[in-house]
Amino acid sequence: MILYRLSQGLVRVSLPLLGVRFRVEGLEHVPRAGAFLLLFNHQSILDPILAQTACPRVVYSMTKSTQFASPLMRWLVPRLGGFPTRRYQVDPQTVRTALRHLAAGRPVGIYPEGERSWDGHLQPFRRGTMRLVLKAGVPVIPCGIRGSYEVKPRWGTRLARGEVTVRFGRPLHIPPARTRAEREARIDETAGLIAEALNAAMES
């Protein structure tokens, strides 16, 4: 993961040059070893870059499959920890890859909203992500990204100056669901719990 670490350094150097102050909070909540799920809010195209730069561990992130359209991206994105997910259909391979990373003790990053927000507010979570949370049985770390919407909203064409804060919240220990029926029954409750923690990480 040399390229991953290089890109982290490059982003840290580039952001101030672009007029973006970058702060990271709550690093004490990031486990030094072992698997966890890192769930981010998604307001801006910058979020994946910021989140991966902020986290001291190498994060393997679900990335929309259309990002892999060009040969360059197919070469680059996997080297930066990305693996494809087809968002327009149920994609068992994505779940298999995520669980494989977790089983190997690696962190997996997911944007549970599934796409960038138009207005900067947290959107409802995808139920598939909640199913994965309930299946994986690993700590869930809410990671709030604040300020990226002001720097580059979905409807903006240029970067503005500003401050971006990535804040890792306290790990949530959500007991795994053993059966499919239990998973389905606990989706809404789990989503509520994570949304509350993510909103807190975004606001504090």
Partner: peptide
């Protein structure tokens, strides 16, 4: 079509050929 994306011999997932 959907094509597999592999890294180090393992399938990471699939992407679509538009």
């Amino acid at each position: 079509r959907h094509r597999p994306l592999k890294r180090r011999g393992r399938v990471l997932g699939f992407y679509e050929a538009l």
